[in-house]
Amino acid sequence: MEELRSLRDLKRINVSSDRLYSATHEEILNGYTTDVYFLRTMDILRKMGLENKVVTAEIFARREGLLAGIEEAISVLKNKNVEIWAMPEGTVFEPKETIMRIRGPYSEFGIYETVILGMLASSSGWATAAREAKKACKGKPMLCFGARHVHPAVAPVMERAALVGGADNASCILGAKLYGKEPVGTVPHAAFLIAGDTVEVALAYDAITPPDEAITILVDTFKDEAEESIRVAQALGKRLYGVRLDTPGERGGVTVELVKEVRARLDQKGFNNVKIIVSGGLYPEKISELADYVDAFGVGSYISGAHPIDMTMDIKEVEGQPIAKRGRIPGIIDNDKLIKVK
């Protein structure tokens, strides 16, 4: 597979419908996910003999956020003849603040504008949402459970971004591994529904689990959450780390009153050591309400459903001369947060 350089190259692209619809790494790096007008731009500049003019481009965001995806964006250009300055991943940026600067022949990076902006927009949106959710946790651990809400091709990107944003871990295997962590998760409702009893699953879970590994059990499948929590605690004793409440919206979801009752009943039976973890449609306001009574959170759709943060790439210099479209200030915009990375 060769890099796309011209509109003429489109004729050699034959795409079968008998494939997964997501782009492969090779397709991304060879320009197959760019907007087609960048190929037309290259044809025009080549016709004019201008395709190798050295330009400086800067990227900024339309709103405040937490930067993620910058390392992936840099990797797109690692084999290109360009210089790059960028904010470190995990940096908070303000609206219109320069996030990344690229300098080199336009032919070296022009077709990747779409790709780089998309990487930064999506990952920064997810990381920013994770930061908001984590702040609401009041210091309690937060796990990202959002992979099921997005296309599997981007699920690891999303969960990795959540870790950049402050999540303590993630359930998506590849997402956690990309960030240098081991994925975490308990057992889904499917296991309990197939087995028919929560305690039986809990005992089997214990039997296959190393002694030093914590065990957390879902307790909202069949019975009242408080009753089921006590049954599981009595069956597993000190082996039980925590119970997870994921009460569906049809039953009113997880509420402060429910958590307080489960806590009180566990304590009355002598199970003060058992933690309470909650999940299911959580968002910052609800997390904040629960945070004084809960030991950890699993957050999914609030992070995975976050809006991308619009990113813009502007050419600010051509052959060292300041330039800009109307409405923008010509020339590069200094930013002390930028670090030369290439």
Rank of each mutant, 00 (worst) to 15 (best):
R5M: 07
L10R: 01
S17N: 13
S17C: 04
R19W: 00
R19V: 04
R19M: 02
Y21R: 09
T24F: 08
E26W: 00
N30W: 08
V36P: 10
F38Y: 15
L39S: 04
D43S: 09
N52V: 01
V54Q: 05
V54K: 13
V55T: 10
I59S: 03
R62D: 14
R63W: 03
G65A: 13
I70L: 12
I74E: 12
I74G: 07
S75R: 15
V76I: 15
N79V: 00
V82T: 05
V82S: 11
W85Q: 07
P95T: 03
T98F: 05
I99M: 03
G110N: 10
G125A: 11
A130C: 09
R131I: 01
E132F: 02
A133D: 12
A136T: 06
C137I: 02
K140L: 11
K140I: 13
F145I: 15
A147F: 03
A155Y: 07
R160D: 00
L163F: 02
V164D: 04
A167W: 06
C172I: 08
A176H: 10
K181G: 00
F192S: 00
L193A: 11
L193T: 10
Y205D: 00
D206M: 14
A207V: 05
P210W: 08
P211F: 13
D212S: 13
V219I: 12
V219N: 00
E228R: 09
I230Y: 09
A235M: 10
G242Q: 10
T247S: 03
P248V: 06
P248I: 08
R251V: 01
F271N: 05
N273Y: 15
I276L: 10
S279V: 07
L282Y: 06
P284I: 06
L290A: 02
L290C: 03
Y293Q: 01
V294I: 11
V294C: 04
F297T: 02
S304A: 15
P308W: 10
I323N: 00
A324Q: 05
A324H: 02
R326M: 08
R328N: 08
R328Q: 11
P330H: 10
G331D: 02
D334Y: 13
N335A: 08
D336V: 15
K337H: 11
K337E: 01
